[in-house]
Amino acid sequence: MSVRIMAAGRSALLLEVDSDAEVASLHQELVERQAAGLLGGVAEIVPAARTVLLDGLDRPELVADQFEGWSPGVGAVPEGPVVTVPTSYDGEDLAEVAELWGVSAAEAVRIHTGCEYRVAFCGFAPGFAYLTGLPEQYAVPRRSTPRTRVPAGSVGLAGGYTGVYPSASPGGWQLIGRTGLPVWDLARDPAALLLPGTRVRFAATA
């Protein structure tokens, strides 16, 4: 199906497609057209679950016209770099997640380390990446009561996503482990390690 184009105020457009893979394709197309100067002025290109937001557009109508009837291709997205996240699978919710999956804790770790993930988008907090790649049957609900403080480096699950808390914050994800890998570091450019398009694997440490 072709992309749905919605105005979000006077200088932004929200482009919507049907899947993560289509978002990746749309995002790639937008980044290429921006580099080619076809979008006019644009301040932000923000991918999300089913949408890409273009904010701070000089000429939203120019972009809307370009994408009228445009359809995403799937599978043509260039492969990003692979980042391995060393993880101690000792999270407070690991037993609960294993129970939801109907497997042992050890098997849950094998399932989680056995997938290849891709950063679909960042949000919630600086450098917080939403990783897709866990098969649909392993989706888990958020905790009914969010924790007031989740430590930096916590590896969690919510819905079909996996994420790593870049800094300590309140949070409602199910915590399965933690990593010492700094996913957010202001001394680095870019500060976020897990940028949209990055491929990610988790490796269990003792």
């Binding site: 105020g9 932004a12 999300a48 679950a49 089913r50 949408t51 890409v52 937001l53 904010d55």
Partner: peptide, 10 residues
């Protein structure tokens, strides 16, 4: 609603 980008004034 799946998470989506937000603008100033939304």
């Amino acid at each position: 609603l799946p998470s989506e980008g937000m603008v100033l004034g939304a």
